[in-house]
């Protein structure tokens, strides 16, 4: 499976580039030659982070395989050890992760350094028709702009599928917005609708998140809601911004015992939103392969990642 991701020659080039370090570190005995399974999801950012982790572990002498898997089945796999490392667990959009952690079904390795941010978003051209934006207070006056036959006189707020959480119904109600919350069936469906609306220059109000390619590709702004406070969420009113959430690194419970060295490397690895966003953009918009983006990143950040390997 790995060769699908490794272009053969690129692999060799990368290995030659890392040769001095490879030899010095690969000397350290690797605890187990069993392949370490790394989860890769179908969003472009995950292509980057999974491949980077795989490269790093291989440089340290471990045998890795990247497993392409849907976000829906990754947790079962992680629990059973079919996946060893999960570099990107989005707590913001996958509330079930918290349950897994409290039940100790998976190990939390730490924060990935990336921060997820969910916001309501509209394309820039909407601003002309609804001048009060980006304040949420302007939305009610423009509700008719966003209305569809299904929502009647109410505006339509398109959000992610129900199982992503978000409590949008409560938020809309308690903010007193004259909007109906409509759940898209999947991320692809939501983005397709946004893309179509942007092509037609139609008003649309939706939920987008960062780091993601969509807010980069489509020109738009986030609606300003009352700022996030702890009480606002805990009281169950939700009439404020969604909390920013760390993206966690998770591991199979037996991973630390079997590959302590690899576990240490995984724990040390952190990325930030800026570089991740850049990688995302290069992969999804500029059409670069994730392979070349990772190689580029490794060339530029040699100091950082060699410190992780120590």
């Amino acid at each position: 499976m790995s060769s699908r991701i490794w272009g053969g020659r690129l692999l060799k080039a990368a290995l030659v580039a890392c040769l001095p370090i490879t030899t010095s570190i690969a000397m350290a005995a690797v605890e187990s030659n069993d392949p370490i399974a790394i989860a890769q999801h179908d969003w472009a950012g995950s292509e980057f982070s999974a491949l980077l982790l795989s490269r790093l572990l291989q440089t340290a002498g471990y045998n890795t395989k990247i497993i392409t898997i849907d976000a829906s089945s990754v947790n079962t796999a992680l629990e059973n050890g079919d996946i060893t490392f999960q570099p990107e667990a989005w707590t913001t959009s996958h509330p079930e992760i918290e349950k897994l952690l409290t039940e100790k079904k998976v190990t939390e390795v730490g924060e990935s350094g990336l921060v997820g941010m969910d916001r309501y978003w509209y394309p820039l051209y909407v601003k002309e028709k609804c001048p009060g934006l980006p304040s949420y207070k302007a939305l009610n006056a423009c509700a008719a702009l966003f209305a569809t036959p299904e929502t009647g006189s109410k505006g339509r707020l398109l959000v992610y599928p129900e199982d992503w959480g978000g409590n949008d119904e409560k938020r809309v109600e308690n903010l007193g917005l004259n909007f109906e919350v409509v759940h898209a069936g999947s991320e692809a469906a939501l983005l397709a609708e946004v893309k179509a609306a942007v092509q037609r220059h139609q008003p649309i109000l939706t939920w987008l998140y960062e780091p993601h390619w969509a807010p980069v590709a489509f020109k738009g702004e986030y609606v300003k809601l009352p700022p996030y406070t702890k009480e606002c969420i805990e009281s169950g009113s939700y009439a404020c911004e969604k909390p920013k959430g760390p993206i966690l690194k998770l591991a199979y419970n037996g991973a630390n015992a079997k590959w302590p060295g690899a576990y240490k490397i995984f724990k040390a690895m952190t990325l930030n939103n800026h570089e991740y966003g850049q990688a995302l953009e290069e992969i999804s918009l500029d059409g670069k392969t994730s392979d070349s983006v990772v190689t580029e990143w490794m060339d530029h950040n040699k100091d950082r990642w060699s410190a992780w390997l120590k």
Binding site: A71, S72, E96, D163, H183, A189
Partner: peptide
């Protein structure tokens, strides 16, 4: 399959079950 494009029927239940394991 169309649960993935936003219906609230039995299909949605199976898809939700998938993500809630």
């Amino acid at each position: 399959v169309t649960a993935l494009i936003g219906t609230r029927d039995l299909g949605r239940e199976t898809v939700n079950a998938l993500s809630h394991v």
